[in-house]
Design a protein around this nucleic acid. Structure first.
Lengths: 196, 196
DNA sequence: CCTTTACCATACCAAGCAGTATGGTGTCAC
DNA sequence: GTGACACCATACTGCTTGGTATGGTAAAGG
């Protein structure tokens, strides 16, 4: 029986993202995505040419979600130093502590090793995040309360440490990332030359 | 025609490592490994039960190689601060700048996402490296020339930044890691509170 | 000398899964 | 009312690749 759904593409992408984030991208097949979306594999292929296009749609969903929530976090924050701190806090909570987002993005990194399109997709998001944080660091620097010579350099270092901490959760199951949130925040802020 | 080889297991592991390091682990199949080793797939399976056991053997080879070369690097270095510096320098050259080792270990990280045995193998190596560096930092601290409160904390941060920099090479093809070697070294030494 | 090990050449299997086919119905827009 | 779109149920294909089978020979060890 036909079930017409408005914005079916988005619904499928969201459904796919949920499964990818819960089980790991490589443990999810197209049959599972169709079943989880309450439609048939034929319908899924009506909207998406390949599994890769589904993965890329899930990526876009993730990027959009990050932007939207980051904008919301900083909406009523005027002070540049506070904005920077809140941005880092949010990133830790959203991309690291949130296990679904963490599992998804680690899976994307794994795929980026072998697939050019997925690599470019992630690189685009990574660049966007970096430029965004560089702007925040430069604004904080203008206040005189943050002593940073090269905003780009400290943001780069902070971001690689950030991704490295996510990797660490793969190999250390006992690494309680929620409990370590404050220590992680302090470590990353120190890298940004912005410690209390 | 039979070709008997001494220490065939090691030869196969080394051959496999070479292919994994050159093409990426997921792009290498058992037929390729047999061909590259100048033997048949039947022979390969005589020595190794599964592809996974081949990968784990290649890991052990990598770990052994790291230990051996690190020991060699520090053989005639007595000064604790010099030993720490040399260790970090060597790690950058061996695990990051060396593209084969970098490709191999990134591939292992990708597999560790989904396979418990590979995860444990890598975790074991990671722990060994960490404990080793903590000892070096503590010895350097004793000289009074390195101001570190918590050796474990700074080594952890340095290691996650290290792994994060490797990830960055996946998404930034123009990131010339050899050219950046000095900047990377300086950044990591700063994290270790050991900058010049 | 006999048994076991260590290989060989070659074919084969299985299994999973991405992706396609097909004949259909319901919905929507004009 | 008609054509295009958006789905359906179900079967099917292809294909890659890990892993196995089989009957063999050469080398090694006792």
């Amino acid at each position: 029986m036909t079930t017409l759904v408005k914005d079916m593409s988005s619904k499928l992408a969201r459904s796919a993202f949920d499964l990818f984030a819960r089980h790991g991208i490589n443990n999810v097949n197209m049959d599972m995505i169709a079943a989880h979306s309450n439609c048939t594999k034929g319908s899924l292929y009506w909207h998406y040419d390949t599994k890769k296009t589904v993965i890329l749609a899930a990526c876009d969903l993730y990027y959009r979600n990050w932007e939207e929530q980051m904008r919301h976090e900083l909406a009523n924050v005027k002070d540049p130093v506070k904005r920077l701190k809140k941005a880092v806090h949010f990133s830790i909570r959203h991309c690291m502590v949130d296990s679904k987002n963490r599992v998804f993005t680690l899976g994307i990194m794994g795929l980026a090793l072998y697939d050019e399109d997925i690599k470019k997709s992630w690189a685009g998001f990574y660049d966007m995040v970096r430029e965004f944080l560089i702007v925040l660091v430069n604004e904080a620097k203008k206040t005189g309360r943050v002593k940073v010579e090269d905003a780009r350099r400290v943001v780069d270092l902070m971001l690689v440490a950030f991704e490295g901490i996510k990797l660490r959760t793969i190999i250390e199951p006992d690494f309680d990332i929620s409990a370590e949130e404050k220590a992680i925040y302090n470590g990353l802020m120190e890298v940004l030359k912005c410690s209390e």
